[in-house]
Each structure stands twice: as structure tokens, then as C-alpha cells.
């Protein structure tokens, strides 16, 4: 069940587009903001609200990198694996992250604290390598800096 707040936020987006289906991505982002991910149940509720089939909405959901259709941890760590970060030490950073967190890309730590995901170029190439934790971008992340960065997210 969508919460009244989620429903209100989604309905507020209707004014911005000429039809309800156009709100699909905004709607899933809203739900994800509240719950971290978009469950099957939420997907069905959103689809109903937007007057489209759940399958059609799932086709949209699975196209986009930032719509999560599986549960994630309390914090999502996205590691840029694009070219500038690759040149500046992505491989080493990924090795450090996977070994410190004890998980591979796409996995969540057992305590539910972190989910680790690869992400494409974060548009901060003059500060490569970069990672993004939740909505925060972190610049020039070398292995020494990593502990300090992760420490902020409980």
C-alpha cells in the first residue's frame, strides 16, 4: 500500500504532464525515496494510480539504472566505473571496497548497512576516482580516504 504521503507526492506530479503515464519515473523515484526500493506490491499500486499495467511499468522500471527493484541496504554506495575514474584508480578502489565491506558489486552487507553498485560516469572527472553514497558525491576517493567516507554512514 502506498502511504498517503507517497500518493500525495505522486498526484502532485500529475499537474506537470499531459497524461498520467508520463509520471511513471517520477512516481517510482518518490516511492524509492521513502522506501529505498520499489517492491512488486508498490509497483502494482503505482501502476494502478497511473492507469497502466504493472508489466508495462516494470518494463519502464527495469530500463533505468537508478530504479531499484530489489531491496537495498540503508546506504547505497555507487562506484563510478567509467573511463576517467578507471584511469585514476577505479580497480584498486573497487578491490578495497569489496574487501572492506566483504561483499561483491550488487550485494548488500549482512547488517543491511551498505549496498554496493557500479555506476556510470558521475560527472566529476576532475576529481576521479569518485563514489556516491546516497545523495552525496565524494571526490578523489583513495583507499586512505575510504574509511573516513564510510564512517559517516551508519
Amino acid at each position: 500500500m502506498l502511504s498517503p504521503e507517497e500518493r500525495r507526492e505522486i498526484e502532485a506530479e500529475f499537474a506537470h504532464y499531459p497524461n498520467k503515464q508520463a509520471v511513471s519515473i517520477d512516481a517510482m523515484r518518490i516511492v524509492q525515496k521513502h522506501r529505498g526500493w520499489v517492491s512488486d506490491e508498490c509497483l502494482k499500486d503505482i501502476a494502478e494510480l497511473l492507469e497502466m499495467s504493472a508489466d508495462e511499468l516494470d518494463g519502464v522500471a527495469t530500463f533505468y539504472n537508478l530504479i531499484f527493484r530489489r531491496p537495498v541496504g540503508r546506504h547505497v554506495v555507487m562506484v563510478c566505473d567509467s573511463v576517467s575514474c578507471w584511469i585514476m584508480g577505479y580497480d584498486r578502489l573497487r578491490r578495497e571496497l569489496t574487501s572492506r565491506l566483504g561483499i561483491q558489486m550488487g550485494e548488500t552487507t549482512a547488517d543491511g548497512r551498505f549496498t554496493l553498485l557500479p555506476i556510470v560516469c558521475l560527472g566529476a572527472c576532475d576529481h576521479a576516482p569518485t563514489i556516491m553514497v546516497d545523495a552525496d558525491l565524494h571526490h578523489d576517493v583513495d583507499p586512505q580516504k575510504l574509511d573516513g567516507v564510510l564512517e559517516k554512514y551508519k
Binding site: Q21, A22, V23, I25, D26, M28, R29, Y64
Partner: peptide, 27 residues
């Protein structure tokens, strides 16, 4: 004027892919 935040995909930067994304479809 309306702000739309992307769901994230390189194809959204392609002019017509972007239009599909804005319509709430696959890009």
C-alpha cells in the same frame, strides 16, 4: 518550467530517447 529527474540511462541523452523518457517510457 518543470524539473524532471532522470531514472538514469545514457540513452536519455539522445534527443528522441530523452523524449520517450520524459513521456514515462523506456528511452
Amino acid at each position: 518550467m518543470i524539473v524532471h529527474m532522470s531514472g538514469g540511462r545514457y540513452m536519455c541523452g539522445e534527443e528522441t530517447g530523452l523524449l520517450n523518457a520524459l513521456e514515462g517510457k523506456r528511452a
